[in-house]
Computed example of a mutant assay.
Amino acid sequence: MTPAAVRTFALILGIVFVVVGIAGFIPAFVVAPATDAGLALDHGHGRLFGLFPVNWLHNLVHLAFGVWGLVASRGFGGARGYARAVAVIYAVLAVMGLIPVLRTTFGLIPLYGHDIWLHFAIAAVAAVFGFMRVSNGTTARP
């Protein structure tokens, strides 16, 4: 793994988060939920692309992680710190989605359904880029 790969990961994940955050505010991409999820903040609540539960606060979190990734991608240290933080935070969010009392983040952000496996996947990939040994990309010559 090279520093450039870690920076590229932060850039790509940042772009994806920004796009997903914006998409969550576009009604055409959000399907209204069939049942009440018990959210205190239910404005904009629905399933993004018909799969992932979101609300306006969830969308803002995606945008924040996106902007953070874009800024972090400018340097190796920032990108690595971003990847490590995403790995830990998204693993915690995935586990919270498995616990009934925490699956709505105290009524603020939905973390259940397809969000659980997606958050675990994001955490796993981020862990690879954040915690794997990084080389300078050069090879030793005999």
Rank of each mutant, 00 (worst) to 15 (best):
F65K: 06
L60A: 13
G69R: 02
I22F: 11
F52E: 03
L98V: 03
L57H: 06
L51N: 12
R84F: 00
V61H: 05
A40Q: 14
A124K: 01
N136D: 15
G69A: 05
P27W: 11
M132T: 15
S73F: 02
I116F: 04
L102C: 04
R84H: 00
I109S: 02
L111C: 01
L48E: 08
A126Q: 01
F120P: 02
A124G: 05
V71S: 04
L13A: 11
V95F: 03
G130L: 01
W68A: 14
P33G: 09
F131N: 05
V30S: 10
P110Y: 03
V18S: 05
G24R: 09
L102S: 10
P110L: 06
L108P: 02
F65P: 02
V31S: 12
V101K: 14
G24M: 12
L39N: 04
F131D: 03
L118C: 04
P3C: 07
A34H: 13
L57C: 07
W56H: 14
L60W: 10
V86H: 00
G77L: 13
G78W: 07
A5S: 14
A37K: 12
A23P: 12
R103N: 15
H119T: 02
L48F: 09
I22W: 07
V67I: 15
M96Q: 05
H43S: 15
P27V: 10
V19W: 09
L41E: 15
W117K: 06
G50A: 09
G107M: 02
H62G: 09
T35M: 10
V67F: 11
S135E: 13
A126K: 00
G24E: 08
P27Q: 10
F52Q: 06
F9E: 04
F106L: 14
G137R: 05
L48Q: 08
L13F: 09
G21H: 07
A127Y: 05
V86G: 01
L41I: 15
W117R: 04
L118W: 03
P53H: 07
T105H: 05
M132R: 13
N136M: 11
D36T: 11
A123S: 14
L60F: 13
V54F: 11
P27M: 13
A23E: 11
I15M: 10
L98Y: 01
G75N: 14
F17E: 08
G113P: 05
L11Y: 12
P3N: 10
F25M: 13
W117M: 08
P110I: 06
V95M: 00
D36R: 11
L108R: 00
V6R: 01
A87F: 03
G44N: 12
V54M: 12
G113D: 13
A23M: 13
L102I: 00
F52K: 05
A123K: 00
A83S: 13
L108Q: 05
F129A: 04
A127H: 02
F25S: 09
I109C: 09
V95K: 00
R103E: 14
F49R: 08
G46K: 05
I12H: 07
H43C: 08
A85D: 00
L70P: 05
T138W: 10
G50I: 12
T8P: 02
L57F: 15
V61C: 10
H62Q: 12
T2Y: 10
G24K: 06
V95S: 00
M132G: 09
A10T: 07
V6E: 02
G113C: 04
A37L: 13
H45Y: 15
L108W: 07
L111I: 02
V134T: 15
T104D: 05
L118K: 03
I116M: 04
